[in-house]
Design a protein around this nucleic acid. Structure first.
Lengths: 283, 283
DNA sequence: TCAAAAGTGTTGGTATTACACCCATGT
DNA sequence: ACATGGGTGTAATACCAACACTTTTGA
């Protein structure tokens, strides 16, 4: 392995030969945009919508009706309109696909049942869409469990599927559903979204976005277990989340919907940071 | 505060009336792109290039020569070309502005002097550029200390400036340099990049990207202190970083370039995750 | 000899685990 | 009565902040 001294490598030397720190000469924001010099890009938003159903982490997938990737599953998404912000576009798509409203981030105690929505990453490989240059700004949405997509109308056009099923490159899903790879680069986007969710619930209160407005400590724990695919000690988990000031707010009510001894109901508190973080056990 | 029951809010009910999970009807990827229906977007990359100079966190700023924001400081950036990926475009811009090569992420022990480069976030407010719709994919680059921008040629066209000076909305910088707000939404982008860097060095080996290839424990500590703006205990810091397996690799050499007793030289090791994380003291 | 920076030892407080154990309900 | 899930107590352990102390150089 060739070793390069700290501050005087060829890159810097080369830069000193005239290329460093110069203003770029083939682009300046002051120039009017010339479409013939820079062909237009299409800009879309794609959504990774995650929820926890039946103890497993699921994502919303829609079936493509058109070529390319006709008949294959894909992430929901669509064009950004000329007058809307990227976040607005993502919220609109989310609402169109699921009926979910988006949480107002200014309303700190999450009183409503809205979903969490955040920008994930942007994907712009020139070949990611075979027809044209499409740059997609992917967003991550976390939602509480919702009723299954209606079978009427355009049946089989949308479903919640376990993420490991959508990311599996061969084999078949639960209902014999063909588990062909997702369309475009959506497998990569989904994988990135799942990883973001997995790491973010470690140190934030984001897991509560998977729960209904009022939930028990055990329900919150099952969210962590489903997202991480691990088992957590119920006793220590209880101590951890109830012992963090501002993380959970008791509503006063109790429920026995999970059976057993009545459990206290909580709402998400104002604290968005979990410090020290929840420890994710090795798998 | 109106409370909404968990799983039967109006949003869901409304969705059940026919709007939920339907395929979007005004957009389908199978349709050929119609520019008259969806006016083209320009896609750019903007760069937050950070380095540590004289014990303070600095960012690269370039002066705008054209309207709008003529004469104001801005982040370096430029159009994404039709045939290049977003990461390629960011790496090209970084090289053009600083002469820095980008680290090959596959070369795990960071032997070269390249910079760290990662996507930060995408900014697409319809009004962020007064002339046209521009979506900018911001990237974050971390570089070791570089020679100051050359004063020859297009003098005063680029400089390293402390981030708090660039983010200050009033007053003047060190040289009487006018500290007007950065052009466009670049203050927000810079703030987001700084926050990303501050939080990421907590739990990763990213701080080594600010150091030359070989560095001492004290030099690495001064990076943390500059980025976070705090003082760290030299003894505990030493134990922490040398005690994490694979984090630092001793090169065998020593140096006294900081004065005092000779210090061991290290290179960044293969470990990219620092677990448990470095604790960022309260400010 | 002194200042400066590197590096080691020690200690008390705190957090985390891995349990044993009890509580309140539905069947 | 008993299964089920909720919730508390406790001891062993690991970790970390704080600081005293030693080492090795340049001035």
């Amino acid at each position: 392995m060739a070793h390069m001294p700290g501050r005087s490598g060829p890159a810097i030397d080369g830069a000193d030969e005239g290329g460093v720190y110069r203003q770029e000469d083939d682009y300046d924001r002051g120039m009017p945009y010339d479409p013939s010099a820079y062909p237009p890009f299409a800009v879309t938003v794609d959504l990774v919508v995650l929820t926890v159903r039946r103890h497993s982490l699921c994502a919303l997938a829609v079936r493509r009706g058109e070529s390319p990737f006709q008949g294959r599953w894909a992430l929901p998404g669509g064009f950004v309109r000329p007058d809307e912000d990227l976040t607005q576009a993502a919220a609109r798509e989310l609402s169109e696909e699921t009926g979910l409203r988006v949480h107002d981030p200014d309303v700190v105690p999450a009183q409503d049942n809205g979903a969490h929505l955040e920008q994930l990453a942007t994907y712009g490989d020139p070949k990611r869409d075979p027809r044209m240059r499409v740059v997609s700004v992917a967003h991550l949405a976390l939602a509480p469990d919702l009723p299954a997509p209606k079978a009427g109308g355009d049946a089989n056009s949308a479903r919640w599927a376990p993420v490991e099923e959508l990311l599996r490159q061969d084999g078949y899903g639960r209902d014999g559903e063909q588990a062909a790879p997702l369309a475009f680069d959506h497998a990569q986007i989904l994988a990135d979204g799942v990883e973001r969710a997995r790491s973010k619930i470690e140190y934030s209160s984001l897991a509560t976005a998977f729960c209904p407005t009022e939930f028990t400590v055990g329900e919150l724990r099952r969210v962590y277990e489903a997202v991480w695919g691990v088992a957590l000690d119920p006793r220590n988990f209880h101590r951890k989340v109830t012992g963090t000031p501002g993380f959970l707010v008791p509503t006063g009510g109790t429920t026995t919907r999970q059976g057993g001894r009545p459990a206290q109901l909580f709402r998400a508190g104002g604290a968005t940071l979990l410090n020290p973080p929840m420890l994710r056990p090795e798998v």
